[in-house]
Design a protein around this nucleic acid. Structure first.
Lengths: 323, 323
DNA sequence: CCATGAGCATAAGCATAACTGATCATCATG
DNA sequence: CATGATGATCAGTTATGCTTATGCTCATGG
């Protein structure tokens, strides 16, 4: 018996098999499927060649065919396969809508604290079937490597990345001086005014590099007395009087009354935050949507920044003129 | 996008898809599958036409292809399908060995008590993967109907059945007089000796018909004072002195010292027990095996009958001659 | 007992799908 | 810039799948 592998099976043969089993005759099955009786006869013959045994007893004459025991057994498997195919079809449709599969996103602390919660909230509300996995690291190269390896679909990044990645710009995150309240008068502080202050900062990473370069360009040779990547710790140390810090605005809580924030003068560029993915690689619909939402959430954050600094000129709500 | 249904999918496309995903290039996948690179390229193109999207990013040049997000998602499904196909293949092999699937057998009380336990025991030991379902009825027509409807794969039957069934003969079950010990001298009893005895018997069924016909042919016009299909009850009634019974040997316990069994004279034919199935219908391998085992277990039973009656002439084991 | 019709199988013919072999374009590499 | 590995594509061939036409089987009903 020349018995082929089931892996050579065309699902259409199972469809025909199922139809014949339901209809009882090859002819009616053919009619339902839009074939001729002969075609169905040949399809069943193909199926039987593949499984190696008859799946129908043909009693001859006008009597309907009946499943052989093996046919009945196979049909259970076959129907399970067909419904699984339908489920896969549905799942692919959901995937195309972004509402299935998994999305891995690289992030770093300040993003995780600010844009990510609302972003993931929106995604989960809009695409509840999508599994979102976030991976956080404050070391750019870790994120880059995992992104390049395909472990991550998307990653938030700081500054420019090499051209093997495509990016979408999200926002500019300006640096601010963090000091004790009252230590400096409200408003901008000259960099020259803090040349002798002990500095608190982060460990070396691209953000800190931008930061230090900016300070140096303002004539300050930074003297770091403590470095930590935990932004909360930095703020606490400032409150404790250990020194002052210069941090990206996203890294501090602008609502915290226990520290005061000051723009620096002369101003130097903030860090540019983008979202990146491997160039030349198709993005999943979920990733596309994530990027769009990231852009809009970031725009809201940028808007809050703009309102924060210069400190909003306490504009009184316009009174309706009394007639 | 002319997107076909997944039900039109040929599993060979998934095999190629899987191979390319594993090998990284169309060419190596083709080599492994015994195709040309061109064939695999076209197979992937077919797959992509069916799912409606690219499943690989082709970076161009000598770089390997990489799964698109949708491709990765589809591949998980595809691999699940392929392993399911392999499992089905294995299951079909087991089915062909009789060790998978379900076997429904029709039976009646005396068979259930005697041949069936050891028969099912042998089957379960030999084919532990087979599910055996027994359906018992003491009404022949019920068994016949269920067999004809295909609810039963096989059924034990009494006597001849209509030609829409095929049968295999199992054994002849002779009728015996059941009496109180001492009521008659050991050995055969003339039918004429029990013409005045009140009779116990079963309700009308084919076995009882044969029985009554036999008694009539021996000159006895049976006078039934109690009928039940429960053979244990018949024996108990005999012990209680209600009357005597004529039952097939399979229906009584020949080890029970509280009743005594007697052949009747003139002898009349016992009931013929066979196993039947729908003629023209393929039998499952499990059913084939069941029939074979039924034949051999029945032969053992017939042997015990032969030893029982005439009571085995206590033949001494031959002593080796001393030199 | 024969005519009828429902049913599947099969052969012949054709259209299409699938595969091969050759060639082209792409692009990393040295 | 030459090279080589890669996928796409085209033309040609083979294989597959489908239709039409026909034959065989067998239950049914005169």
């Amino acid at each position: 018996m020349l018995m082929a592998d089931l892996r050579d099976l065309d699902m259409r043969l199972l469809v025909a098999f199922d139809a014949v089993a339901n209809e009882g005759t090859f002819g009616r099955a053919a009619e339902r499927l839009g074939y001729t009786q002969s075609a169905v006869s040949q399809q069943i013959a193909s199926l039987e060649r593949i499984v190696g045994d008859r799946v129908f007893d043909r009693p001859g004459g006008p009597r309907p065919v009946e499943l052989t025991p093996l046919g009945a057994h196979l049909l259970e498997h076959g129907r399970a396969l067909l419904t699984q195919l339908d489920r896969i079809s549905d799942d692919l449709d959901r995937f195309r809508a972004g509402d299935a599969g998994r999305l891995s996103v690289g992030t770093f602390q300040s993003i995780s604290n600010t844009v990510l919660p609302s972003l993931i909230g929106s995604m989960r509300k809009e695409l509840p079937g999508l599994e979102i996995v976030a991976f956080e690291s404050d070391y750019d190269d870790v994120l880059h490597d995992r992104l390049a390896a395909g472990d991550l679909d998307l990653s938030f990044v700081v500054g420019d990345v090499d051209p093997s990645f495509d990016t979408r710009h999200l926002l500019n995150d300006p640096f601010r001086l963090i000091a004790r309240p009252g230590q400096f008068p409200a408003g901008p502080v000259q960099i020259s005014a803090i040349v002798d202050e002990p500095l608190l900062g982060q460990h070396a990473n691209s953000c800190q590099m931008i930061n230090e370069a900016g300070l140096r360009s303002g004539g300050l040779d930074p003297n770091y007395v403590f470095r930590t990547n935990d932004n909360g710790t930095v703020a606490a140390m400032v409150r404790a009087g250990m020194g002052v810090a210069v941090l990206p605005l996203l890294c501090v809580d602008p609502e915290d009354p226990r520290v005061s924030l000051h723009p620096l003068e002369p101003a130097f560029p903030g860090r540019e935050i983008s979202i990146a993915w491997r160039s030349g690689h198709t993005l999943s619909p979920a990733a596309e949507r994530f990027i769009e939402l990231a852009v809009s959430v970031s725009a809201e954050v940028a808007l809050r920044f703009a309102e924060l600094d210069p400190p909003p000129p306490r504009r009184r709500t316009k009174r309706p003129a009394t007639a």
